[in-house]
Design a binder for these strands. Structure first.
Lengths: 205, 205
DNA sequence: ACAAAAATTGAACATTGTTCAATAGAAAAA
DNA sequence: TTTTTCTATTGAACAATGTTCAATTTTTGT
């Protein structure tokens, strides 16, 4: 039975992912060490390289899991039959909640630098794209005349702006902004963007 | 004469900073190596540690110079006797120009992670603060009723949003957004934020 | 039970940042 | 100028890292 082998390899991969996730949560992605992960899993360093291409590959897999968790969190929070404005506001707030609750996993998404030469695997790009699609959904109702490309562009811009604000606020090591104040800012800013988009839309022929 | 000594040390520091700047421009901040810098300067590795505390300190000095260059670029571009809206738009566009012209130096500002335990030196925090003050200037005219704290908060939010948009667009390794389109987006977004701010201001007592 | 195949191991290697005893150089004293 | 003292510079040595691969152990098929 070759099933046993596959099961073992799958278990190893799972344990490596779990240990890495746990270590990122505890110390941050910059502090991930191959020997450290191996020790936590109870295997030799070399085994890590039989389950994943290298450390970057392992971390990328953790990051992809994080993207999926984020996607689930946003999907779970999505209100039924709410106005697109309410949906967008909820998305922004849920993003903030996820970022502050899983801070180190979340920063790992952006702090981990993929080797410049290598192409990012398609399955990871797909996981990123899913995020923008979540935003493009309600946006489509607000901009019925926009085509899919333009919708995705606006979704990316919206995400980037909110992301920028959250990043700057959460990374402050000295004057950390209070989370309820930050949430109010995010909500205010979301409304601001949406009303701006709406105005532009109304002006169209 | 102890002047000769001081001059030599100052020259060494300058050369180290120049070499590091050049290497960051060429390969990015992640690729900075102590031995490599020393070889470019023509000194021993150890000398680097007599001029700067460590590699992080050296890179932080380069980053602070970059912040100063950015501040100069924004100051130089500042129009006389223009509306605050025009000023903000110009700031955002000049920021985009700086980021795309000095891409690797600019990303080093955010990619270089300062050791978690150590406090960031005050002179570097001051250089950061100067940026927000540049934005707070025109913002003060738009929000005459706001106090300095609130102005700085709004300035930070404005910066963070624009920064987020520029970061996401410039880092795209696959579908790089055309710069003129990006500039249009930035301008549109700036107007959007400003009109939103104005509306909120008008509603106040 | 045995042999072939595969998986696992961890010592070994190449590269890092950083240190520090030894050397070279500059300043002061004779 | 010569000698002595202090300082600056050097680069071999160290510890920590990611990664590899010959040797070993485990699993599979008969």
């Amino acid at each position: 039975m070759s099933d046993k082998r596959e099961a073992k390899k799958a278990a190893l991969r799972t344990h490596l992912l779990e240990a890495t996730t746990q270590q990122i949560c505890q110390k941050g992605v910059e502090e991930i060490r191959a020997r450290d992960i191996a020790k936590h899993v109870g295997c030799a360093v070399g085994s890590l390289y039989t389950a994943f291409e290298d450390l970057d590959d392992l971390i990328l897999h953790v990051n992809s899991q994080t993207l999926q968790k984020l996607d689930e969190a946003l999907t779970k929070g999505r209100p039924d039959q709410a106005s697109p404005q309410t949906c967008m506001e909820k998305l922004a707030c849920d993003y903030l909640d996820f970022a502050s609750t899983h801070y180190r996993l979340w920063t790992a998404l952006f702090d981990h630098k993929w080797p410049e030469g290598k192409a990012v695997p398609q399955w990871h790009l797909d996981n990123q794209q899913k995020l923008f699609l979540q935003i493009a959904g309600p946006l489509k109702e607000l901009l019925p005349k926009a085509d899919q490309d333009h919708l995705l562009l606006e979704a990316r811009t919206f995400f980037a702006a909110i992301h920028g604000i959250i990043t700057l606020s959460l990374q402050e090591r000295y004057a950390a902004v209070d989370k309820t104040i930050l949430k109010q800012q995010i909500i205010k800013f979301t409304h601001l963007i949406l009303s701006g988009l709406q105005t532009q839309e109304d002006l169209k022929p």
